[in-house]
């Protein structure tokens, strides 16, 4: 454990839906029960928190005893699956109040699930969600494009990106294309 004074909050990485969807590799940094869990994003960085802005198109209340909400947030490249359960009461109530469709900003933790038929799903456990406007969405696309390009520029030079190469065989030019397409959808 790090001493309290050295504590640094994990930054929220910016990632497009189509990249997060490809994420498969998850690891724990340290042996401790409380050690943070990270995923390695295909563009080559570890992440235990992400920040996304998109359109909430759908939300559903599920469960009887343990109520939780699921939702879909769409960005220019695809769909994020978000969920907020009773362990995140604030986030769950925030989500409960929002009526789709709406632009939302979500801070959350990415986690991997394997469905009974063997498919791997990435969902985002919501820490907070709030309604924003279109300009914020556009700013997020620019921000995410920039951060993704920064990661691709450094690809192959960092430990995390070597791990990504090993796990996913990432082709940086493919992700550049995704970034380009995402940017093209932003209206001037």
């Amino acid at each position: 454990m790090k001493p309290q004074s050295a504590f640094e909050r994990e930054p929220a990485r910016r990632v497009f839906a189509s990249e997060l969807r490809e994420t498969r590799y998850q690891f724990k940094d340290g042996e401790d029960e409380k050690s943070p869990t990270y995923v390695i994003l295909p563009s080559g960085i570890r992440s235990n928190r992400i920040f996304i802005v998109g359109t909430l198109t759908e939300k559903q209340r599920q469960g009887d005893q343990n109520i939780y909400y699921r939702g879909r947030v769409v960005d220019p490249t695809g769909t994020f699956f978000i969920m907020a359960g009773s362990y995140q009461p604030e986030a769950m109530q925030q989500l409960a109040r929002i009526e789709p469709p709406a632009f939302v900003a979500v801070v959350g933790k990415p986690s991997l699930y394997t469905t009974p038929d063997g498919a791997c799903l990435v969902s985002v456990r919501v820490e907070s969600i709030s309604v924003v406007d279109r300009e914020t969405r556009d700013l997020w696309v620019l921000d995410t494009a920039r951060e993704t390009l920064d990661r691709l520029d450094a690809f192959g030079t960092t430990e995390d990106s070597k791990k990504a190469q090993e796990e996913y065989g990432t082709r940086p030019e493919l992700y550049r294309k995704i970034v380009y397409d995402a940017l093209s959808q932003v209206q001037l």
Binding site: L142, A145, R146, L149, E173, R176, K177, V179, Y180, L183, S184, V186, L188
Partner: peptide
């Protein structure tokens, strides 16, 4: 936006 488009498309 224009600068980022150039950056993303430039090498693609």
């Amino acid at each position: 936006l224009a600068a980022l488009l150039n950056r993303a498309g430039g090498e693609a």
